[in-house]
Design a protein around this nucleic acid. Structure first.
Lengths: 341, 341
DNA sequence: TTATAGCCCGCATTCGAATGCATTAAAAGC
DNA sequence: GCTTTTAATGCATTCGAATGCGGGCTATAA
């Protein structure tokens, strides 16, 4: 006896089901809704037939009439996925719990134009979460379309949009204070691309606090926010005359690159010869190989909050805009000298 | 002068545009298709009006009539995202290049039931890529619905489905040969969960080859496919009497955990006291902190192939099923003694 | 001038499900 | 037993765009 693949059948519609049990299409429709007036008897009958015919309501047709697609677009870059894979998972989980689908929109750079999103915006989205920077003019465009939106880890100065973000500026300032307090005076700041707002906020917070403390000449090296970038940038850009006391990296990946360059290429010891501090507290940071002193941002929690904000705005479009600011937590490990010298 | 938010307007439809220029709705529709017979004059007129009214074709309505949603579901677990974030990005990129949207479906375990996918399957998907295991009966169900499908890094024994997968079995056997050839005799195999088919294939390939070579008693420790799992599993499960010569881990994350446990907790030296080999060649493997000897699977390339297979099947449903087997490449680094003793 | 072809465009229908309103049947009230 | 209320179902329309077919208009040929 050979098993033969079942033939592909045309997808059954509510009409097919209706015909097969001798009721109206509207009756079938009502059997798949929770609150409708349907006798248990016909409900059983219809659902039974539906099962037999392999009928499933067509989400697209439903969306068309209900004006609700149940789709949430999430805009990310390659680095969002690499740096915070758990964020995407957490967002997906939270959305699924509310019956929403996650439309993942990968964009090349952390500042897409509206053209990059054109195809996606042709769908009547229920909402949108952006993990990348969007220009104010495009934010306005999206808002005019009536699409509820939440910004993740960034906010807009000009346009009122809900957002959830770490207190990058304050947290980076805190790092500056601690390093300065420990006696460090020659600083190096390793940043991501200048147009990446998260990195920029962290850099500005760090430099701002140092200014306050009277330190004005801080070397800055711009990288691409990656391990390789951090490593190469550190080796190439390092002023050969004077090694810095302390290096602040705007994310952990850069810090790992710097640490490996310092230890394995230059033969330095950390934190004896140089202190390194990162930002994010990704899992690797806590492992013995790096043992990185860093700032912890609870991105999974932030992801849940973002979804929560979005769902709230979908159901209540008129409520006041909220810009949640999440404090980061300093995690002292072994990569930086922090006791006063 | 205060800037005031533009009011939310109802989304313009093709009828709105038609009315505003005095043509029929069908004409508007044709102006947004490539091959239709429309004079350049009216096309310009209509597109101009569309721009003015903020009209965009409604992808949902279009899908309903064209029977093509342009949506591809990609099913992943938390570990897919963590271990291969670039895969998802590459898939998204390849799909976007073909005008498809990526519907990300996160599932809890690497063996979801059809019920976990119910909501997603209500959409008339153009196709589906599964990075998780799906039971044959459910695969059949999906095929009956006529949804083109590709399995990523796994295949089905019973159901003919396109797939792209690493030659896990052969590659793991290769590792076994090399370790055995170098004189190792006491082996430990650290695996992921038993129901994760990728891990199982790698384990079986490893054990199978050792059997051939006359090694029958290989210790096996099952973990959850993570760094922490590898570390804890190694420390807890290790036979206290005899340290293994060589440890094969079914992925790099486990290997990192094992290495850190061995070096930092047990004070062992790698590869002098014990050899460790991983699988995947994630970026961290090549960094000096681990310098892990491993098997490289080019998952980005595989992702592109998966999309290619899927698109091909969408346009030509009748062609023969293809099970692409991608050879892995052995990457000798410093975590394993490989010269014959 | 008339026949003929070709190009544009409009009309009407279609995709599949949801829903207001009308209708029928059953239950309750007197 | 007849009216009134209530519950269950059907009818018809709607969401927004795509498309086959037919008609009108222009251009070319006879």
């Amino acid at each position: 006896m050979t098993t033969r693949a079942a033939p592909i059948r045309r997808r059954a519609t509510s009409y097919d089901v209706a015909r097969s049990v001798g009721v109206a299409q509207s009756t079938v429709s009502r059997c798949f809704q929770d609150d409708s007036n349907i006798s248990q008897a016909t409900k059983d009958l219809v659902r039974d037939a539906a099962l037999r015919l392999g009928y499933t309501p067509n989400a697209l047709a439903r969306s068309l009439i209900t004006q609700r697609s149940n789709m949430i677009a999430v805009i990310v870059t390659r680095y969002t996925l690499r740096g915070n894979p758990d964020v995407i998972y957490a967002v997906g989980e939270a959305l699924a719990a509310s019956g929403k689908q996650l439309l993942l929109v990968p964009v090349e750079h952390d500042a897409p134009t509206i053209a990059d999103l054109r195809v996606t915006l042709e769908y009547p989205l229920d909402g949108l979460i952006s993990c990348v920077q969007i220009a104010d003019i495009d934010l306005a465009d999206i808002q005019v379309r009536g699409i509820p939106m939440v910004l993740f880890n960034r906010r807009s100065a000009g346009i009122p949009v809900d957002s959830v973000a770490t207190r990058h500026f304050d947290a980076a300032g805190d790092i500056a204070s601690r390093l300065h307090g420990a006696g460090h005076r020659r600083f190096l700041c390793m940043t991501g691309p200048a147009d990446a707002p998260v990195s920029a906020a962290r850099r500005d917070g760090f430099l701002g606090k140092l200014q306050e403390l009277g330190v004005h000449d801080v070397q800055i090296i711009e990288t691409d926010y990656s391990y390789d970038g951090g490593k190469a940038g550190f080796l190439a850009g390092l002023a050969p005359t004077a090694l810095p006391d302390a290096v602040f990296c705007t994310n952990d990946q850069i810090a790992f690159g710097v640490m490996d360059a310092a230890r394995f290429t230059l033969g330095l010891r950390i934190p004896d010869n140089v202190s390194v501090v990162g930002f994010d507290d990704v899992p690797e940071a806590g492992r013995p190989g790096y043992n990185l002193t860093t700032m912890q941002q609870d991105s999974v929690q932030m992801a849940r909050l973002a979804v929560q904000l979005l769902l709230r705005r979908i159901t209540a479009p008129e409520i006041a805009v909220e810009n949640l600011q999440i404090a980061a937590r300093f995690v002292a490990r072994g990569s930086a000298q922090l006791a006063a010298k």
